[in-house]
Design a protein around this nucleic acid. Structure first.
Lengths: 344, 344
DNA sequence: GACGTTTTTGGGAACGTTTGCACACTTTTT
DNA sequence: AAAAAGTGTGCAAACGTTCCCAAAAACGTC
């Protein structure tokens, strides 16, 4: 069973016109008399005509859909980015197809290829933490698929990119920990492959340097799977604690909440004694205990900007040669001592 | 610029066959010699042939895509449902298009109609808290669009539905509050329109009745917008507190976290003195302070079951007349006194 | 009133598939 | 040996659009 709608042909037949004329009237293209146009439009309205997007796509060789690849939607940062993407895409007549990698390279490749075969017009992607080899993306790109990266971007890929000011965000967060008296500040971060990992590490180091605190590599712990496995996090925490950090700067949403959980589970007695600052866009931070200082990314805006760039690529008349990397400022939300840690 | 792929025609030409033969070889349909099939398959593999899903959709008059309507993806319950949906859909060759209502009826209608005009093959929907009039859904349904409801379902709509055992979940949560000594138990809930609101209210009332606690209507507060606006929640909390409740049972994910926030913001001094039990699928509950007892819905499974039902409808050969309402059990996760509230 | 110009309309191919039908060839049956 | 049945292949139409090209109609000009 299929639900049927009227087509251009039906309208043409009913009105004694040709399909070309009806099409022109509906799409308001080419020269067409006011009269016929009104006639057609009125009739189309009456029978509740909806153009079949599939037929249109086939003819125009584009689907008016864009693919989104994120690690998971159950992550406030990404869901906010998606909201930003949708806000622009729908206005411009595109719909979006969301795919999750769960931080797996294999899944990422599979999803991208599935999307590409579904004939998306363009791709918005934040790389998975496992991803190192992006030749599959280069192939698609060189075949003409427009791609815009956001958040987790590759270094040498000539296209538009949108990222947060990771250096500054990290610097601010680390500085905040230092200014509140912490001196042994650990850094829990994502896989070394990721751009955000490198940039955030630099911010952390710069802040330490500014206050003449020695950078100790052993205080930095990388999580290959971006905190998708709790065992990974618990292990990292376990390895960090012997150095008796009085502060931890954490570099991503998932890791931040995961680290709090791990601390609370494995070492509840110290959980409240370590100051925590981390990247997170969770809108529940105020509920967390232990409480923390958070670095919020302009996720919604990031989605918007990335989408505008992508659509400009999709609709570009000629080859684009100049690409930009937009950098958006983060916001530091300081721990609310009066509420969160009042029981300390 | 468009990225090009080889088509059936190209293969046919290259191999000196007709498009029909190639199509049959690829789709493995009808009688076709092993030999030609192998030949075609090998060549297709070589040129990395991907069937154009748009052409196929046009021909077959179906898009192999299903629409999902939820209130928001930044909600663990819904994002888990979506994961469940995807796990089944992708296996069966469908892709999904997600739309958010943000609890607005207008947005819901707009999104559904947009999806329908995008020729989805079926729809999975959890109604928005504002929704009362679903004639627009009835229209689509009567025109032949398969629809399966989950979580928030309408009463008199003859189709498959998947819900949690809301009555039992609420009963258990309320009973848990009673057994831990609470006697003035408020109930913060969603808009009165929703099925889940009614069912959960009944569970709450039944638990009170079992322990001979009088049901007081003034202890029940409805939130029309499902807690999307913090003002709404703060108002509800403000109206509830004068009755000095020693427990609150909350009936949805968004409301649960929102209520904690509101309590903490407006009345931090009592926030930790009121026992809270609420529906939530957040995987961060263990971090919350004040801590709470949560009713977890089998979200992933709900998505899976709903999708299986939907696909069975889509692929049904003849009209379906028997519909089922699947009811899945919830899980009560008791507050961890030793961790969450150790500072009380 | 014949001609050119502009405006409006229709015919029909194309996008990439799937599939009913017909045909040719091979094998089986009588 | 002829008829029947079976097997593999190709032709062509269809899905619902868009758009090039040409035809027709309307208008203006001398």
């Amino acid at each position: 069973m299929r639900f049927e709608t009227s087509t251009i042909k039906d309208i043409a037949k009913a009105l004694g016109l040709s399909t070309s004329t009806v099409s022109r009237a509906l799409r308001d293209r080419y020269e067409i008399s006011e009269e016929t146009k009104k006639l057609v439009l009125a009739y189309a309205e009456k029978v509740n005509y909806r153009a079949n997007p599939i037929a249109r796509s086939l003819k125009e060789r584009r689907s008016y859909s864009i693919g989104i690849i994120v690690s998971e939607i159950a992550n406030n940062f990404f869901s906010q980015v998606i909201n930003g993407i949708e806000s622009i895409a729908y206005d411009r007549g595109y719909h979006v197809i969301i795919s999750q990698t769960h931080e797996s390279y294999k899944q990422e490749k599979l999803n991208v290829e599935h999307l590409a075969s579904r004939s998306i017009d363009g791709l918005l992607i934040a790389l998975s933490s496992e991803t190192q080899d992006i030749t599959y993306l280069r192939n698609l790109y060189s075949k003409g698929l427009p791609i815009v990266f956001f958040d987790r971007v590759p270094e040498d890929f000539d296209t538009h990119k949108v990222i947060a000011n990771n250096f500054k965000g990290s610097f601010d967060a680390t500085e905040h920990l230092i200014l509140s008296g912490k001196r042994t500040i650990a850094h829990l971060t994502n896989s070394e492959n990721l751009s955000i990992t490198k940039e955030r590490l630099k911010g952390y180091q710069a802040a330490l340097a500014k206050y003449h605190i020695e950078f100790k590599p052993e205080l930095v712990k990388y999580c290959q799977h971006g905190g998708m496995h709790s065992a990974e996090l618990e292990q990292a925490v376990k390895e960090l604690l012997p150095y008796k950090p009085d502060g931890i700067f954490i570099s991503s949403d998932r890791l931040t909440t995961g680290c709090l959980m791990a601390l609370k589970k494995t070492n509840p007695e110290v959980a409240h004694k370590i100051a925590i600052a981390g990247f997170t866009n969770s809108n529940l931070v105020e509920l967390f205990s232990p409480s923390l200082t958070s670095v919020k990314q302009p996720a919604f805006e990031m989605g918007q900007v990335a989408t505008e760039l992508l659509i400009s690529m999709i609709e570009a008349k000629r080859e684009i040669t100049e690409f930009e990397t937009k950098i958006l400022d983060t916001e530091l939300v300081r721990m609310q001592k009066n509420i969160g840690n009042r029981f300390l």
